[in-house]
Design a protein around this nucleic acid. Structure first.
Ligand SMILES: [Mn+2]
Ligand SMILES: [Mn+2]
Ligand SMILES: [Zn+2]
Ligand SMILES: [Zn+2]
Lengths: 139, 139
DNA sequence: CTCTTTGTTGCGACTATTTGCAATAACGAG
DNA sequence: CTCGTTATTGCAAATAGTCGCAACAAAGAG
């Protein structure tokens, strides 16, 4: 049983209907490249069939994020999607030169616990972006 | 010397030209209400003169964010701007019910230091959003 | 297999934001 | 104050993403 099947099973259990569109979109999401934009997912699905509308791509990606199956990350202009749990790391995005540093997500472990404890909030911290200024850009 | 003047002086020093549009946009940003959308800023500027284009609002807000003078925060659908330093706090946004918890920004102090130390990255953490699942929405 | 229910899709319209470009105006030099 | 340089603006067109709604199809019942 591969990843796509697992996800479909989860969706089935949560009363979502399994459509060919959803299968193809999930396949694309798991396709190896992560950091897929909605357009990337669309392009990849198009290679299989042209019978999928871009609005369905957006709606399905939204649904997958809402269900905790995919992550949505704003890299400052570009919005990317990835399957949750895929090699966690965070993005440090420079607001000045737009350079992106990939950083270890373990820096967030303590924060995660504290938000859970103090606010009962289960934060999705596996693939977030934080904005700021990189070394090169400090005056 | 009020806040608007301070900001204008900073911009002048950084070789930006001071235009009436920029003055009005900065005034709006400092106007008391924070959590202003670009449209809110536009509406407030309109009460003074109708001679400002919405594209200028967007461009100026972008510039203020880039210069570290304003913060841009995505509340999950709504994008809001606020002057940097204005009562720091963070937003915990539930991806399921969209409820927003305002949380103390001090939970980020350790993270801030670590990013600075390990990556030389000066993160803007005073008014960020973190997405996840609130207590009420956990199954 | 057939029918019914209702979630999902495609489509076209619409909103929010961005961009290219020519006209305008801020500001430093003289 | 006047002029020249060049950043900034307005405008209109382009782009990304959202939404309402009618047609469609997945899933469960019989
Ligand atoms: Mn990444
Ligand atoms: Mn706030
Ligand atoms: Zn930088
Ligand atoms: Zn919730």
């Amino acid at each position: 049983m591969n990843d796509t099947e697992n996800i479909l099973e989860t969706l089935r259990q949560r009363q979502f209907r399994i459509t060919p569109q959803r299968e193809m979109i999930i396949d694309a999401l798991l396709s190896g490249e992560h950091h897929l934009s909605a357009e990337d997912v669309y392009a990849q699905v198009q290679t299989r069939t042209s019978a999928v509308n871009i609005a369905t791509i957006y709606r399905t990606l939204d649904m997958l994020v809402e269900q905790g199956i995919a992550s949505r990350t704003d890299l400052g202009g570009q919005v990317i999607y990835a399957p949750v749990g895929h090699g966690p790391h965070i993005h440090l995005v420079c607001r000045h030169c737009s350079f992106v540093i990939d950083a270890d997500a373990t820096v967030l472990a303590a924060l995660d616990e504290q938000l859970q404890r103090d606010y009962g909030f289960a934060a999705d911290l596996g693939h977030i972006s934080l904005f700021g200024v990189c070394t090169g850009c400090k005056e």
